[in-house]
Protein backbone atom coordinates (compact mmCIF):
# COMPACT_ATOMS: atom_id res chain seq x y z
CA UNK A 1 0.00 0.00 0.00
CA UNK A 2 1.43 3.47 -0.85
CA UNK A 3 2.51 5.62 2.13
CA UNK A 4 -0.21 7.92 3.47
CA UNK A 5 0.58 11.55 2.63
CA UNK A 6 1.19 13.48 5.85
CA UNK A 7 -1.11 16.30 6.92
CA UNK A 8 -0.04 19.82 6.00
CA UNK A 9 0.90 22.00 8.96
CA UNK A 10 -2.40 23.86 8.68
CA UNK A 11 -4.41 20.64 8.54
CA UNK A 12 -2.54 19.24 11.54
CA UNK A 13 -3.25 22.39 13.59
CA UNK A 14 -6.94 22.30 12.75
CA UNK A 15 -7.22 18.58 13.36
CA UNK A 16 -5.64 18.94 16.78
CA UNK A 17 -7.93 21.82 17.67
CA UNK A 18 -10.94 19.84 16.45
CA UNK A 19 -9.91 16.78 18.49
CA UNK A 20 -9.60 18.92 21.62
CA UNK A 21 -13.01 20.46 20.95
CA UNK A 22 -14.64 17.11 20.42
CA UNK A 23 -13.08 15.58 23.57
CA UNK A 24 -11.57 18.18 25.88
CA UNK A 25 -9.48 17.17 28.89
CA UNK A 26 -11.43 16.53 32.09
CA UNK A 27 -10.13 17.08 35.60
CA UNK A 28 -13.22 15.46 37.03
CA UNK A 29 -12.51 12.15 35.28
CA UNK A 30 -8.72 12.52 35.22
CA UNK A 31 -8.85 12.15 31.45
CA UNK A 32 -6.62 13.85 28.89
CA UNK A 33 -8.17 15.60 25.90
CA UNK A 34 -7.96 14.13 22.42
CA UNK A 35 -5.53 16.93 21.58
CA UNK A 36 -3.04 15.56 24.13
CA UNK A 37 0.38 15.24 22.55
CA UNK A 38 0.70 11.46 22.71
CA UNK A 39 -2.88 10.89 21.55
CA UNK A 40 -2.57 13.38 18.75
CA UNK A 41 0.65 11.77 17.47
CA UNK A 42 -1.21 8.47 17.41
CA UNK A 43 -4.03 10.11 15.45
CA UNK A 44 -1.57 11.48 12.91
CA UNK A 45 -0.02 8.03 12.49
CA UNK A 46 -3.41 6.34 12.07
CA UNK A 47 -4.99 8.25 9.19
CA UNK A 48 -4.28 5.34 6.83
CA UNK A 49 -6.90 4.71 4.21
CA UNK A 50 -9.00 7.64 5.51
CA UNK A 51 -6.43 10.32 4.75
CA UNK A 52 -8.35 11.69 1.79
CA UNK A 53 -11.71 11.85 3.56
CA UNK A 54 -10.11 13.47 6.59
CA UNK A 55 -8.55 16.11 4.34
CA UNK A 56 -12.00 16.79 2.88
CA UNK A 57 -13.55 17.13 6.33
CA UNK A 58 -10.82 19.49 7.46
CA UNK A 59 -11.29 21.55 4.31
CA UNK A 60 -14.99 21.86 5.05
CA UNK A 61 -14.23 22.71 8.68
CA UNK A 62 -12.02 25.61 7.69
CA UNK A 63 -14.69 26.86 5.26
CA UNK A 64 -17.26 26.83 8.06
CA UNK A 65 -14.75 28.56 10.34
CA UNK A 66 -14.08 31.21 7.71
CA UNK A 67 -10.33 30.54 8.03
CA UNK A 68 -8.21 28.37 10.28
CA UNK A 69 -10.44 26.49 12.74
CA UNK A 70 -7.58 26.55 15.27
CA UNK A 71 -7.63 30.33 15.30
CA UNK A 72 -11.23 30.52 16.53
CA UNK A 73 -11.91 31.26 20.19
CA UNK A 74 -12.82 28.14 22.21
CA UNK A 75 -16.60 28.73 22.46
CA UNK A 76 -16.87 29.39 18.73
CA UNK A 77 -14.93 26.20 17.94
CA UNK A 78 -17.61 24.06 19.56
CA UNK A 79 -20.34 25.79 17.53
CA UNK A 80 -18.47 25.30 14.26
CA UNK A 81 -17.57 21.69 15.11
CA UNK A 82 -21.26 21.00 15.75
CA UNK A 83 -22.16 22.66 12.44
CA UNK A 84 -19.82 20.27 10.65
CA UNK A 85 -21.34 17.41 12.60
CA UNK A 86 -24.86 18.42 11.59
CA UNK A 87 -23.85 18.23 7.91
CA UNK A 88 -22.83 14.56 8.32
CA UNK A 89 -21.26 12.50 5.53
CA UNK A 90 -18.43 10.05 5.06
CA UNK A 91 -15.58 12.55 5.54
CA UNK A 92 -16.97 13.60 8.93
CA UNK A 93 -17.36 9.95 9.93
CA UNK A 94 -13.72 9.30 9.02
CA UNK A 95 -12.58 12.35 10.96
CA UNK A 96 -14.41 11.55 14.19
CA UNK A 97 -13.58 7.84 13.89
CA UNK A 98 -9.82 8.30 13.79
CA UNK A 99 -9.99 10.53 16.87
CA UNK A 100 -12.09 8.01 18.80
CA UNK A 101 -9.93 5.07 17.64
CA UNK A 102 -6.84 6.63 19.18
CA UNK A 103 -8.44 8.31 22.19
CA UNK A 104 -10.19 5.25 23.59
CA UNK A 105 -7.09 3.09 23.58
CA UNK A 106 -4.82 5.47 25.46
CA UNK A 107 -3.68 4.01 28.80
CA UNK A 108 -4.73 7.06 30.81
CA UNK A 109 -8.17 7.11 29.21
CA UNK A 110 -8.65 3.39 29.78
CA UNK A 111 -7.72 3.77 33.44
CA UNK A 112 -10.05 6.71 33.87
CA UNK A 113 -12.83 4.41 32.62
CA UNK A 114 -11.88 1.74 35.12
CA UNK A 115 -10.57 -0.53 32.36
CA UNK A 116 -7.27 -2.34 32.22
CA UNK A 117 -5.05 -0.92 29.49
CA UNK A 118 -4.22 -4.19 27.77
CA UNK A 119 -5.12 -6.37 24.82
CA UNK A 120 -7.91 -8.92 25.39
CA UNK A 121 -5.54 -11.86 24.73
CA UNK A 122 -4.04 -13.70 26.57
CA UNK A 123 -5.65 -12.86 29.93
CA UNK A 124 -9.23 -12.67 28.73
CA UNK A 125 -12.02 -11.64 31.07
CA UNK A 126 -14.44 -13.15 33.55
CA UNK A 127 -18.14 -13.47 32.73
CA UNK A 128 -20.43 -14.75 35.46
CA UNK A 129 -22.46 -17.89 34.77
CA UNK A 130 -25.59 -16.27 36.15
CA UNK A 131 -28.73 -17.77 37.60
CA UNK A 132 -29.78 -20.63 35.37
CA UNK A 133 -33.05 -21.08 37.27
CA UNK A 134 -34.28 -18.08 35.27
CA UNK A 135 -34.83 -20.56 32.45
CA UNK A 136 -37.27 -22.71 34.45
CA UNK A 137 -40.45 -21.10 33.04
CA UNK A 138 -39.18 -21.61 29.48
CA UNK A 139 -38.27 -25.23 30.19
CA UNK A 140 -41.89 -25.86 31.18
CA UNK A 141 -43.15 -24.77 27.79
CA UNK A 142 -44.39 -27.43 25.36
CA UNK A 143 -42.48 -27.69 22.05
CA UNK A 144 -43.84 -25.00 19.73
CA UNK A 145 -41.98 -25.47 16.46
CA UNK A 146 -43.96 -26.62 13.43
CA UNK A 147 -43.33 -29.93 11.67
Amino acid sequence: MPATPALTAAEARDLRAFAGTMIPASDRYAAPGADDEAIFSEIERSLGRDREDIGLALGRLSLLAGGAFADLPADRRLTVANELRAEGGAPLTALTRVILLCYYRDDRVMRSLGQEPRSPFPLGHVVEQGDWSLLDPVKKRAPFYRR
Partner: peptide, 17 residues
Protein backbone atom coordinates in the same frame (compact mmCIF):
# COMPACT_ATOMS: atom_id res chain seq x y z
CA UNK B 1 -17.99 5.68 21.06
CA UNK B 2 -18.12 5.49 17.25
CA UNK B 3 -21.65 4.14 17.19
CA UNK B 4 -22.92 6.69 19.69
CA UNK B 5 -21.18 9.55 17.90
CA UNK B 6 -22.73 8.50 14.60
CA UNK B 7 -26.16 8.29 16.25
CA UNK B 8 -25.76 11.82 17.65
CA UNK B 9 -26.05 10.52 21.20
CA UNK B 10 -22.52 11.34 22.32
CA UNK B 11 -21.91 15.09 22.45
CA UNK B 12 -18.80 17.03 21.51
CA UNK B 13 -17.35 19.21 24.28
CA UNK B 14 -17.21 19.02 28.05
CA UNK B 15 -20.34 16.82 28.37
CA UNK B 16 -18.72 14.09 26.30
CA UNK B 17 -17.18 12.33 29.29
Amino acid sequence: AISSTAAGRLPFGADHH
